[in-house]
Write a protein that binds this DNA or RNA. Structure first.
Lengths: 251, 251
DNA sequence: CCGACGCTTCGGCCGCGGCCGAAGCGTCCC
DNA sequence: GGGACGCTTCGGCCGCGGCCGAAGCGTCGG
């Protein structure tokens, strides 16, 4: 019997992602930053020659894009779509396998606040997005979220250039499903601008390696303020401050 | 340097999907129907022994689930999440590669109306979902769509048991991004019930093989009626980015 | 009870593809 | 110009994993 239309399409990209070395590289790139080929090689634990081959393949398949700059070649994820697929694959694996062991402080922090490609993800980001919807800063629209007029002021007050984000060629304010939370948070150009602003204001701080975002005191104040400003939606919603309350999920 | 947390998680599932034979099987299962191991073997073009091994691996990883029934073992996709990841991978491949050749009638029909796991997808489904939103039958809510009170009547008139869909353990009315359209359509328990009802009423007819859905005369009348009942939204419905030439409106 | 059938397990074959070191090319900086 | 550095290409090694046929187990039906 003839195979139906879609199969070779599916397997191509998946086979690329499926190699552990390439997956490690993509995992690194998930923070949205660009990396040189050598950096990726050492982070993934292979020789530069090997990494080079991987990068070439992933570029051809549209998973990553490369920018030459001097004698360096900077590699980054090709698009937010790629990032989202990677996040979903993580979600799949996390729920298919048993929860293994209790989560450590490292992983708790990672689930709490991290960067996903170029925007803000994790428990805290989901709570923020939901609070913004309750406060009528954001509304759900046909293409994800949409800031209200009142909401545009909120973003501007944070230092986000809403007009520039809207003018961007990419989706303006998509919603992105969080793998650890299974709830939406703000992505797209506006999400990226928001993360940028939160970093600039020092409410979030990137760790040097990895995607985990630390939440310093000023950030804890900020999020507590913004999230609690609206009627609590349920008993469990609170606790934005602590970054390692042994967030044990699922028995 | 130590690899960051997520990599092995990502590559596991992806490696499974990445094998062409397994991808072929998953592609077949994307129509939501359960298949016996032998059927899958012949559809994927391998010996039963080979297929058996693949099925075991995919089951362990939570990609498919198996139900023994007499001497048959029925295989189906494990969840709507898996189906969505597969659809997204297709989208990625379709946009990374050039459109290759002009789309044939086969593929045009496939893009127009097909089943995606257990719900209705394709151009027509996207148009229907958007029309239902315009007519206030559906609204966008925090977890995808939500039927209005008036909308519940609409669904019931079609023979959809809304209360049962809502009681189901799975997500009630998620929105699912269409790979060929890049726009949302109705998924989740309500989406599944809707497809069921449309098939029962004869507005859609499954082809024996593959996921393409044919739209007989009664269905064409139904969709024309339901979609046109609201003001047209704009001249060109699609995003300018991915133009599909000759989206022939099947006869 | 026996044969047909569906499925799985086992053993062995084989090829694809990841890996590296060495060599080559381009860029930068002294 | 020369050397250090980043990256790529090439050749060759090697192991993982997909594939099959044969054999074994369970189920169904006459």
């Amino acid at each position: 019997m003839s195979r139906t239309i879609p199969d070779p399409l599916i397997s191509e990209a998946a086979a690329l992602i499926g190699d552990p070395t390439r997956a490690a590289m993509l995992g690194v790139l998930l923070d949205g930053r660009a990396r040189t080929a050598k950096e990726l090689a050492s982070l993934a634990g292979v020789a530069p020659a090997t990494a080079s081959g991987h990068i070439a393949k992933m570029t051809a398949a549209g998973l990553v894009s490369v920018a030459s700059q001097g004698r360096h070649r900077y590699v980054r994820l090709a698009s937010a779509e790629v990032a989202e697929i990677l996040e979903r694959l993580m979600a799949l694996a996390a729920f298919a396998r048993p929860p293994r062991r209790a989560v450590g402080a490292e992983e708790a922090a990672f689930r709490h606040a991290r960067s996903c490609y170029d925007h803000f993800a994790g428990t805290l980001s989901v709570e923020l997005a939901e609070a913004l919807v309750r406060r009528d800063v954001l509304r759900r629209g046909p293409d994800g979220f949409e800031p209200t007029l009142h909401g545009e002021r909120w973003f501007r007050a944070l230092g986000v250039d809403v007009a520039r984000a809207r003018a961007s060629s990419r989706a303006f304010a998509r919603c992105c499903l969080d793998w650890s939370e299974r709830r939406d948070h703000l992505a797209g150009a506006l999400g990226a601008a928001l993360l940028e602003a939160l970093l600039a204001k020092g409410h979030l701080v990137r760790r040097k390696d990895g995607r985990t975002l630390d939440v310093p005191a000023s950030g804890r104040r900020f999020f507590a303020e913004e999230i609690d400003r609206s009627p609590p939606r349920s008993a469990a919603a609170g606790r934005p401050g602590g970054e390692q309350p042994a967030e044990q999920q699922r028995a």
